[in-house]
Design a protein around this nucleic acid. Structure first.
Lengths: 228, 228
DNA sequence: ACAAAAGTGTTCCCAATACACCCATGG
DNA sequence: CCATGGGTGTATTGGGAACACTTTTGT
């Protein structure tokens, strides 16, 4: 079965930049391509958009198929349209970026992927197509967005310590933050619920908190804007 | 001549939300559709993307064809993909937003448009397709962006008074600003070049300034971030 | 002369920053 | 008992916000 149109149409794909924390390092999910072009090269997971699915649905489907990653925060990033970005034909790609908790349960390679793995953002291999540019855009967006919307929590387990979230922010922003000021500011926003649970570690136990999403929505309605 | 593909492909369009100042009111460029669907309804200018043009090129071409507006600041906004956004078939639209100076030289209706006109953003008619949602997204983006990047200048003539730019910001943001604080802050950024020219008006003449784009780029490199 | 817009400084307050020590726990 | 990370308060400062009058010009 084939499909005929009066005018030629660009093909449409989605590509996903999925961030996660692997051993306290900000990392990105990459596949190793199983097919040409760029066979064996590293690339972002992604693929063609079905005629009856939304872009986000396509992104989630491809992620699930190629990497077995699902249930993640996902947001449209930008649409990449350079004329020669794909050597085969004109392909326009809508990029999404995503954040996942618990990188622990390792991704599994699926269709189109010879392998799937997390790669530290500061040690990325060369990427196929214009995927390096897509990644750069996503990383910039993450750095910018994390400062005025509380999306950082999407990368942490549901219960986390203040030190965990601080070092997450330090990792993303690439600079150190003052512990006392960070805690003061974060707690003053009144978005974290202190729990009666404590982390078990090598040393003194730290209190666990969880992010209160409904309170966040309430405060936003009242005109709060999360900052740092 | 026709084109055949193995899998069905969504059609791809661009739509443009072009802002301008008309009689000191923030306004948007709308066409009145000449063809079905939504014949005679108001809509954003836009159209199909050619196989050999970038999205931005398509946006500029459609704008020129339909409205005779060209040479404007244009930036990708978001890609709209709801399954039923067009009654004919699956169409995905990459939206751009633009800013033009000198709304004076009136736009001219071209292909696909029965009429073209500026409409105050607070008095928009009903729009075809999901164009209302696209407009809302663009307006929000403009409001957000104008506060941390000096794009407001794109809406003013090259030479302008401080009062002009203040009232522009008041219009976009929808609130009043303190004259002394606004001037102090703006001038402190050292992005405006005072000219030895003055506006001629009904009353006291006001000094004209112009935006120094290269100085802006320099300061950004040095780590400035424009704010309000 | 008067109406209308241009132009100009100071005070106050809050929020961001800088900064150092004690505490609890596991090994 | 000691090493490691958890937890806490204050003083300073710089920038944002509030605020009113004089000047210039055209009519």
């Amino acid at each position: 079965m084939s499909h005929t149109y009066k005018y030629p149409r660009p093909a449409l794909t989605v590509d996903c930049v999925v961030f996660g924390l692997l051993e306290d390092q900000l990392s990105v999910l990459l596949i190793q391509r199983a097919a040409d072009p760029y066979r064996d090269k590293f690339a972002l997971p992604g693929g063609f958009v079905g005629i009856d699915e939304t872009l986000e649905a396509a992104a989630r489907r491809e992620l699930a198929e190629e990497t077995n990653v699902c249930d993640l925060y996902l947001e449209q990033l930008y649409t990449f349209d350079a004329l020669q970005r794909d050597p085969r034909e004109r392909i326009i790609s809508v990029a999404y970026y995503g954040l996942v908790r618990q990188v622990n349960h390792q991704p599994a390679a699926g269709s189109d992927a010879r392998a799937v793995a997390w790669h530290r953002v500061d040690q990325l291999p060369a990427l196929a197509f214009d995927h390096r540019a897509i990644f750069d855009t996503a990383y910039q967006r993450l750095q910018a967005k994390v400062q005025y919307q509380p999306i950082g929590f999407e990368l942490l387990p549901r219960k986390f310590t203040l030190t965990q979230i601080q070092s997450l922010y330090e990792t993303i922003l690439g600079r150190e933050l003052d512990k006392r000021n960070f805690r003061k500011k974060l707690l003053a926003m009144d978005l974290l619920e202190p729990l009666e649970e404590f982390s078990r570690g090598a040393h003194r136990a730290a209190r666990l908190y969880r992010f209160n999403r409904s309170r966040y929505r309430l405060l936003v309605k009242q005109g709060l804007h999360f900052e740092l």
